[in-house]
Design a protein around this nucleic acid. Structure first.
Lengths: 125, 125
DNA sequence: CGGCATCCGGCGGGATACTG
DNA sequence: CAGTATCCCGCCGGATGCCG
Protein backbone atom coordinates (compact mmCIF):
# COMPACT_ATOMS: atom_id res chain seq x y z
CA UNK A 1 0.00 0.00 0.00
CA UNK A 2 0.96 3.63 -0.40
CA UNK A 3 2.11 5.25 2.79
CA UNK A 4 3.66 8.31 1.22
CA UNK A 5 3.37 11.33 3.46
CA UNK A 6 3.24 14.66 1.74
CA UNK A 7 4.36 17.99 3.06
CA UNK A 8 1.33 20.07 2.23
CA UNK A 9 3.37 23.24 2.58
CA UNK A 10 5.71 22.23 -0.21
CA UNK A 11 4.07 19.91 -2.63
CA UNK A 12 6.40 18.63 -5.31
CA UNK A 13 5.70 20.69 -8.44
CA UNK A 14 5.81 17.59 -10.61
CA UNK A 15 3.12 15.84 -8.60
CA UNK A 16 1.02 13.74 -10.95
CA UNK A 17 -2.74 13.99 -10.80
CA UNK A 18 -2.96 10.42 -9.54
CA UNK A 19 -0.56 11.20 -6.73
CA UNK A 20 -2.52 14.33 -5.99
CA UNK A 21 -5.69 12.29 -5.60
CA UNK A 22 -3.77 9.89 -3.36
CA UNK A 23 -2.75 12.82 -1.25
CA UNK A 24 -6.36 13.86 -0.86
CA UNK A 25 -7.43 10.48 0.51
CA UNK A 26 -6.39 11.08 4.13
CA UNK A 27 -8.11 14.45 4.01
CA UNK A 28 -11.29 12.81 2.80
CA UNK A 29 -11.03 10.18 5.50
CA UNK A 30 -11.01 12.84 8.17
CA UNK A 31 -13.86 14.73 6.57
CA UNK A 32 -15.93 11.58 6.13
CA UNK A 33 -15.43 10.49 9.70
CA UNK A 34 -16.56 13.82 11.11
CA UNK A 35 -19.00 14.77 8.40
CA UNK A 36 -22.63 13.88 7.94
CA UNK A 37 -25.61 14.80 10.00
CA UNK A 38 -25.03 12.78 13.16
CA UNK A 39 -21.36 11.96 13.62
CA UNK A 40 -20.38 14.96 15.70
CA UNK A 41 -23.36 14.65 17.99
CA UNK A 42 -22.61 10.99 18.62
CA UNK A 43 -18.94 11.60 19.22
CA UNK A 44 -19.69 14.38 21.69
CA UNK A 45 -22.28 12.23 23.40
CA UNK A 46 -19.68 9.50 23.90
CA UNK A 47 -17.12 12.00 25.12
CA UNK A 48 -19.02 12.11 28.38
CA UNK A 49 -18.64 8.48 29.18
CA UNK A 50 -19.91 5.05 28.36
CA UNK A 51 -23.48 5.09 27.17
CA UNK A 52 -26.18 2.65 26.25
CA UNK A 53 -27.73 2.67 22.80
CA UNK A 54 -31.01 4.09 24.05
CA UNK A 55 -29.26 6.72 26.13
CA UNK A 56 -27.45 8.04 23.10
CA UNK A 57 -30.65 8.00 21.12
CA UNK A 58 -32.42 9.96 23.82
CA UNK A 59 -29.64 12.52 23.86
CA UNK A 60 -29.90 13.06 20.13
CA UNK A 61 -33.47 14.04 19.31
CA UNK A 62 -34.53 12.98 15.85
CA UNK A 63 -32.03 10.23 15.19
CA UNK A 64 -33.57 6.91 14.20
CA UNK A 65 -32.25 3.59 15.49
CA UNK A 66 -31.26 2.77 11.95
CA UNK A 67 -29.04 5.82 11.64
CA UNK A 68 -27.62 5.51 15.13
CA UNK A 69 -26.82 1.86 14.58
CA UNK A 70 -25.15 2.61 11.26
CA UNK A 71 -23.10 5.48 12.59
CA UNK A 72 -21.97 3.56 15.64
CA UNK A 73 -20.93 0.65 13.46
CA UNK A 74 -18.98 3.15 11.42
CA UNK A 75 -17.21 4.56 14.45
CA UNK A 76 -16.44 1.05 15.64
CA UNK A 77 -15.01 0.07 12.25
CA UNK A 78 -12.70 3.04 12.48
CA UNK A 79 -11.67 1.94 15.95
CA UNK A 80 -13.00 5.18 17.37
CA UNK A 81 -15.64 3.62 19.57
CA UNK A 82 -15.83 0.36 21.47
CA UNK A 83 -18.90 -1.80 21.80
CA UNK A 84 -19.71 -3.74 24.96
CA UNK A 85 -22.45 -6.35 24.90
CA UNK A 86 -24.00 -7.57 28.16
CA UNK A 87 -25.79 -10.90 28.49
CA UNK A 88 -28.80 -9.43 30.17
CA UNK A 89 -32.40 -9.98 29.25
CA UNK A 90 -33.19 -8.06 27.27
CA UNK A 91 -29.76 -7.51 25.88
CA UNK A 92 -28.00 -4.26 26.68
CA UNK A 93 -25.17 -2.71 24.72
CA UNK A 94 -22.84 0.06 25.73
CA UNK A 95 -20.55 2.20 23.66
CA UNK A 96 -17.63 4.31 24.62
CA UNK A 97 -15.14 6.49 22.85
CA UNK A 98 -11.90 4.53 22.53
CA UNK A 99 -8.59 5.92 23.66
CA UNK A 100 -7.72 6.20 20.02
CA UNK A 101 -10.98 8.06 19.42
CA UNK A 102 -9.75 10.77 21.69
CA UNK A 103 -7.02 11.63 19.21
CA UNK A 104 -9.76 13.30 17.22
CA UNK A 105 -9.71 16.11 19.72
CA UNK A 106 -7.06 18.21 18.01
CA UNK A 107 -8.78 18.04 14.62
CA UNK A 108 -12.14 18.87 16.11
CA UNK A 109 -10.71 21.80 18.00
CA UNK A 110 -8.99 23.08 14.89
CA UNK A 111 -12.22 22.80 12.90
CA UNK A 112 -14.09 24.58 15.64
CA UNK A 113 -11.56 27.37 15.88
CA UNK A 114 -11.52 28.05 12.18
CA UNK A 115 -15.28 27.75 11.84
CA UNK A 116 -15.78 30.04 14.77
CA UNK A 117 -13.43 32.68 13.41
CA UNK A 118 -15.05 32.27 10.03
CA UNK A 119 -18.51 33.08 11.40
CA UNK A 120 -17.14 36.31 12.76
CA UNK A 121 -15.29 37.06 9.56
CA UNK A 122 -18.42 36.56 7.46
CA UNK A 123 -20.86 38.41 9.66
CA UNK A 124 -18.48 41.37 9.88
CA UNK A 125 -19.06 42.35 6.27
CA UNK B 1 -26.40 37.00 16.86
CA UNK B 2 -24.69 34.48 19.08
CA UNK B 3 -20.95 34.85 19.22
CA UNK B 4 -20.38 32.63 22.22
CA UNK B 5 -17.07 30.82 22.04
CA UNK B 6 -16.89 27.50 23.79
CA UNK B 7 -13.89 25.82 25.27
CA UNK B 8 -14.27 22.37 23.78
CA UNK B 9 -11.94 20.94 26.39
CA UNK B 10 -14.21 21.99 29.21
CA UNK B 11 -17.78 22.20 28.09
CA UNK B 12 -20.13 23.47 30.79
CA UNK B 13 -21.87 20.41 32.22
CA UNK B 14 -25.21 22.22 32.21
CA UNK B 15 -25.01 22.99 28.52
CA UNK B 16 -28.52 22.87 27.06
CA UNK B 17 -29.14 20.87 23.92
CA UNK B 18 -29.89 24.05 22.01
CA UNK B 19 -26.59 25.54 23.08
CA UNK B 20 -24.87 22.32 22.16
CA UNK B 21 -26.29 22.54 18.65
CA UNK B 22 -25.16 26.16 18.50
CA UNK B 23 -21.71 25.03 19.44
CA UNK B 24 -21.70 22.54 16.59
CA UNK B 25 -22.46 25.20 13.96
CA UNK B 26 -18.90 26.45 13.49
CA UNK B 27 -17.74 22.85 13.22
CA UNK B 28 -20.31 22.19 10.52
CA UNK B 29 -19.27 25.35 8.70
CA UNK B 30 -15.70 24.12 8.47
CA UNK B 31 -16.78 20.68 7.37
CA UNK B 32 -19.18 22.03 4.78
CA UNK B 33 -16.60 24.34 3.32
CA UNK B 34 -14.03 21.59 2.88
CA UNK B 35 -16.40 18.68 2.33
CA UNK B 36 -18.06 17.48 -0.81
CA UNK B 37 -16.60 15.95 -3.91
CA UNK B 38 -14.80 18.92 -5.46
CA UNK B 39 -13.96 21.54 -2.84
CA UNK B 40 -10.52 20.32 -1.92
CA UNK B 41 -9.44 19.86 -5.51
CA UNK B 42 -10.54 23.38 -6.38
CA UNK B 43 -8.87 24.91 -3.35
CA UNK B 44 -5.62 23.14 -4.11
CA UNK B 45 -5.84 24.15 -7.73
CA UNK B 46 -6.17 27.79 -6.70
CA UNK B 47 -3.32 27.47 -4.25
CA UNK B 48 -0.99 27.54 -7.21
CA UNK B 49 -2.02 30.91 -8.47
CA UNK B 50 -4.71 32.76 -10.31
CA UNK B 51 -6.50 30.55 -12.79
CA UNK B 52 -9.11 30.84 -15.48
CA UNK B 53 -12.32 28.93 -15.29
CA UNK B 54 -11.35 26.58 -18.08
CA UNK B 55 -7.91 26.03 -16.63
CA UNK B 56 -9.37 24.87 -13.36
CA UNK B 57 -11.79 22.65 -15.20
CA UNK B 58 -8.98 21.10 -17.18
CA UNK B 59 -7.03 20.42 -14.02
CA UNK B 60 -9.96 18.62 -12.44
CA UNK B 61 -11.01 15.81 -14.75
CA UNK B 62 -14.67 14.98 -14.49
CA UNK B 63 -15.99 18.19 -13.05
CA UNK B 64 -18.82 19.78 -15.02
CA UNK B 65 -19.07 23.51 -15.58
CA UNK B 66 -22.20 23.51 -13.49
CA UNK B 67 -20.44 22.05 -10.49
CA UNK B 68 -17.31 24.15 -10.89
CA UNK B 69 -19.38 27.29 -11.21
CA UNK B 70 -21.41 26.40 -8.15
CA UNK B 71 -18.42 25.54 -6.03
CA UNK B 72 -16.54 28.68 -7.04
CA UNK B 73 -19.56 30.79 -6.19
CA UNK B 74 -19.58 29.05 -2.85
CA UNK B 75 -15.93 29.82 -2.21
CA UNK B 76 -16.50 33.41 -3.26
CA UNK B 77 -19.49 33.78 -0.93
CA UNK B 78 -17.30 32.60 1.90
CA UNK B 79 -14.69 35.14 0.90
CA UNK B 80 -12.21 32.36 0.27
CA UNK B 81 -11.77 33.06 -3.41
CA UNK B 82 -11.84 36.21 -5.50
CA UNK B 83 -13.34 36.52 -8.96
CA UNK B 84 -11.88 38.72 -11.66
CA UNK B 85 -13.85 39.42 -14.81
CA UNK B 86 -12.12 40.73 -17.91
CA UNK B 87 -13.94 42.59 -20.65
CA UNK B 88 -12.53 40.50 -23.42
CA UNK B 89 -14.47 38.85 -26.20
CA UNK B 90 -15.32 36.29 -25.37
CA UNK B 91 -15.38 37.05 -21.69
CA UNK B 92 -12.63 35.59 -19.50
CA UNK B 93 -12.83 35.08 -15.78
CA UNK B 94 -10.07 34.38 -13.32
CA UNK B 95 -10.19 33.13 -9.79
CA UNK B 96 -7.67 33.20 -7.05
CA UNK B 97 -7.49 32.11 -3.47
CA UNK B 98 -7.97 35.17 -1.27
CA UNK B 99 -5.56 36.06 1.50
CA UNK B 100 -8.27 35.04 3.90
CA UNK B 101 -8.62 31.76 2.05
CA UNK B 102 -5.08 30.94 3.02
CA UNK B 103 -6.10 30.76 6.66
CA UNK B 104 -7.60 27.39 5.78
CA UNK B 105 -4.11 25.99 5.68
CA UNK B 106 -3.89 25.04 9.34
CA UNK B 107 -7.21 23.20 9.30
CA UNK B 108 -6.35 21.37 6.13
CA UNK B 109 -2.99 20.36 7.51
CA UNK B 110 -4.57 19.12 10.71
CA UNK B 111 -7.13 17.10 8.76
CA UNK B 112 -4.37 15.66 6.62
CA UNK B 113 -2.21 14.75 9.57
CA UNK B 114 -4.98 12.98 11.41
CA UNK B 115 -6.29 11.26 8.29
CA UNK B 116 -2.81 10.15 7.39
CA UNK B 117 -2.11 8.73 10.82
CA UNK B 118 -5.54 7.13 10.78
CA UNK B 119 -4.79 5.25 7.57
CA UNK B 120 -1.73 3.77 9.20
CA UNK B 121 -3.62 3.00 12.39
CA UNK B 122 -6.35 1.17 10.50
CA UNK B 123 -4.17 -0.81 8.13
CA UNK B 124 -1.96 -1.92 11.01
CA UNK B 125 -4.65 -4.23 12.39
C1' DC C 1 -15.70 31.38 -22.69
C1' DG C 2 -18.19 31.19 -18.60
C1' DG C 3 -22.00 30.06 -17.07
C1' DC C 4 -27.40 28.86 -16.47
C1' DA C 5 -31.65 25.85 -17.41
C1' DT C 6 -33.52 21.48 -17.71
C1' DC C 7 -33.99 16.81 -17.11
C1' DC C 8 -32.95 12.76 -14.51
C1' DG C 9 -30.85 8.79 -11.86
C1' DG C 10 -28.78 7.33 -7.48
C1' DC C 11 -28.58 7.34 -2.82
C1' DG C 12 -28.43 9.26 1.84
C1' DG C 13 -31.37 9.08 5.16
C1' DG C 14 -36.42 9.36 7.31
C1' DA C 15 -40.82 6.59 8.85
C1' DT C 16 -42.57 2.57 10.11
C1' DA C 17 -42.85 -2.14 11.28
C1' DC C 18 -40.74 -6.23 12.85
C1' DT C 19 -37.35 -9.61 15.48
C1' DG C 20 -33.89 -12.04 18.76
C1' DC D 1 -33.49 -3.24 24.26
C1' DA D 2 -30.79 -3.13 20.26
C1' DG D 3 -31.01 -3.46 16.29
C1' DT D 4 -32.77 -5.05 11.03
C1' DA D 5 -35.94 -4.81 6.93
C1' DT D 6 -38.72 -2.36 3.83
C1' DC D 7 -40.51 1.43 1.63
C1' DC D 8 -40.02 5.93 0.05
C1' DC D 9 -38.86 10.78 -0.74
C1' DG D 10 -35.62 14.73 -1.36
C1' DC D 11 -31.80 16.33 -3.27
C1' DC D 12 -27.03 16.18 -4.75
C1' DG D 13 -24.84 16.10 -8.60
C1' DG D 14 -24.17 14.20 -13.66
C1' DA D 15 -25.48 14.93 -18.81
C1' DT D 16 -26.83 17.77 -22.17
C1' DG D 17 -28.10 21.91 -24.42
C1' DC D 18 -28.37 26.90 -24.82
C1' DC D 19 -27.07 31.87 -24.25
C1' DG D 20 -24.63 36.55 -23.62
Amino acid sequence: MDTTDYDLENLPPDLSYEDFLQMLLPLRDSLDILGGKWKLQIIFSLKFGRKRFKEIQREIPGITSKMLSKELKDLEMNDLATRYVHNTAPITVEYELSEYGKTLKSVVIELYKWGSAHRKHITSK
